[in-house]
């Protein structure tokens, strides 16, 4: 059995762009990425799309489908009404390269600014001991496939690109939280979280959590705990009062 889907795909590059409509055959069980591939193979051989694993594990095929940030490989066509027009657009927050491909280098630049993991000394036998309950929080964060959908949906940079130099974005709050909670790590990244990474810009509207294909509780388990750790150090009113009094003397 097959049906015809009405696809409206953004085609364009750094200079110009517009919607292009395609009618495509769809087979049972197919996902949006299959349909994009069929357009590529039959109607538009130069349609640019980034993808790798087609199994939701590599996080390459991020796009905005009917305006919602999603992985194309994990969006099944039967999610949509038969005959419904389906729009596929590139992620909005990043500069467009071509068609559905955007320049996500911002994220790789931010990654470089996060100080590396710095473990404490190992046990006498040269290995480490960590208990399962101590690694579980970090393991949730390390499910991240770096699809950058959370970065893309975050209005702090999506609607205010001028904030990019001051804001690391949800993906890197997840990374910071992971390192901060790592039972072996000895580096202190709270000042970075507050200042350069700008965790204060986040107003916890939770869109990052909503779009995460790995279902990481980005806001509840990473960002808010980071905010709380920052509050511990920088916004404790008693500590603040103390520092005011002592600095006056």
């Amino acid at each position: 059995m097959s049906e015809t889907a009405k696809m409206r795909v953004f085609r364009g590059d750094t200079e110009s762009g517009d919607w292009q409509d395609y009618e495509v055959e769809v087979e049972e069980g197919q996902v949006v990425l299959d349909v994009i591939h069929r357009i590529q193979a039959t109607q538009a051989p130069d349609l640019a799309v980034r993808w790798n694993c087609k199994a939701g594990k590599c996080g390459s095929c991020s796009a905005e489908i009917n305006g919602e940030p999603r992985l194309m490989c994990m969006t099944r066509m039967n999610l949509f009404e038969v005959g419904e027009q389906i729009t596929v657009a590139p992620m909005k927050t990043w500069p467009l390269i071509r068609d559905l491909v955007t320049d996500v280098s911002f994220n790789y630049e931010v990654a470089k600014t996060i100080p590396a993991f710095k473990p404490r000394e190992p046990e006498a036998d040269g290995t480490y001991r960590m208990m399962q309950e101590d690694v579980e929080r970090g393991q949730e964060f390390r499910k991240c496939i770096e699809c950058f959908l959370c970065q893309n949906v975050c209005h702090v940079i999506r609607d205010h690109p001028e904030n990019k130099p001051e804001f690391a974005g949800p993906r890197f709050f997840v990374r910071l939280a992971e390192l901060e909670m790592h039972p072996l790590d000895t580096e202190d990244r709270l000042e970075l979280a507050r200042k350069d990474a700008g965790v204060g810009y986040c107003n916890i509207t939770k869109c990052c959590t909503e779009v995460c294909p790995e279902e990481i509780h980005i806001t509840d388990n990473a960002i808010i705990p980071l905010k709380e750790r920052v509050a511990d150090r920088y916004f404790d009113p008693i500590r603040w009062l103390g520092s005011k009094i002592f600095s006056r003397r």
């Binding site: 590396a116 190992p122 480490y128 208990m131 399962q132 690694v135 390390r142």
Partner: peptide, 18 residues
């Protein structure tokens, strides 16, 4: 494998933390 752990990997653990 131990080197990966030293670089930040979080493997699942045994009851005694290995």
């Amino acid at each position: 494998v131990r080197e990966l752990e030293e670089w930040g990997a979080l493997f699942d653990r045994t009851g005694d933390g290995r």
